[in-house]
Amino acid sequence: MAYSAEISRTSPTAILFLLDQSASMQEPFGGAEQRGDAAPSKARVLADVVNRLLQNLILRCAKEDGVRDYFYVGVIGYGERVQPLIRPAEEYRVAGDLVPISHLAERPLRLEERLKKVPDGKGGFVEQRVKFPVWFDPHAKNGTPMCQALDLAASMVRTWIDLHPHSFPPIVINITDGEATDGDPLRYAQQLRSFATDDGETLLFNVHLSSSEEPAVELPSSVDELPRDEYAVLLFQMSSLLPFTMRAAAEQEGYRVTMDTRGFVFNADPVALVRFLEIGTRPSTLR
């Protein structure tokens, strides 16, 4: 069965983030509680999203004696330039320009203190100070060379696949406001998705951060569920169908999924997407 390869230290998989850093990301995010000028910029939300995705991935791999390298991670920024934002040290070059996740765990840019609501044991919540690791800050400048970014991602994915032909296929998570300025990203997305390991084709998931205030959409199965937004439709079409194993995990978490469900979210929290990757027993009480 496709997409069933074990994800482990001996058989890791690759996760590649594509971060839209174009000038339009300075505009306010439409999915925030605050409206208008009070809303955070899409660039701020993107930084939060990618920092939380990395934090979640690391915590899934963390044990008392360190972080297990189930994942190798790459990050490509696209805006003023299209470039990898993290570089592997010389000893990791074998991973094809990707960084073992333990390496990222040990090297956040900084640790911020944030307030988190935790259950008080009596049915309510209390606020608790927690350390929040930050790897990326907001950045927004120039156009949106998404096609170039998908092209660079394709070449990184090909190198990884050459080195790991039997592994769970690479997962690419593109976080953007959707407006490519260098061509038709659908063609590049199709090309990227066509590179495959024995276990299946590369998965491309899209996270659409929009200024539109239409309701959030998570894991839609058809264009009818999307807001009336040409970029949302395009990003939906670019996104991979959720493979069976991830659909099953999504269903267990209460998501409504079908054979046509795609890895796409509109103005919503994408952390669930990385939770659906199965690496071992996960307590039902942990989100």
């Binding site: 690391i58 915590l59 963390a62 044990k63 008392e64 350390k131 009480t285």
Partner: peptide
Amino acid sequence: PDVPAALPWYVAVKLEEGAHAA
């Protein structure tokens, strides 16, 4: 649990979540 003296941020979070077993 036998907790190391210097806790990396991720071990601190895991410790807070607790250990789990069937």
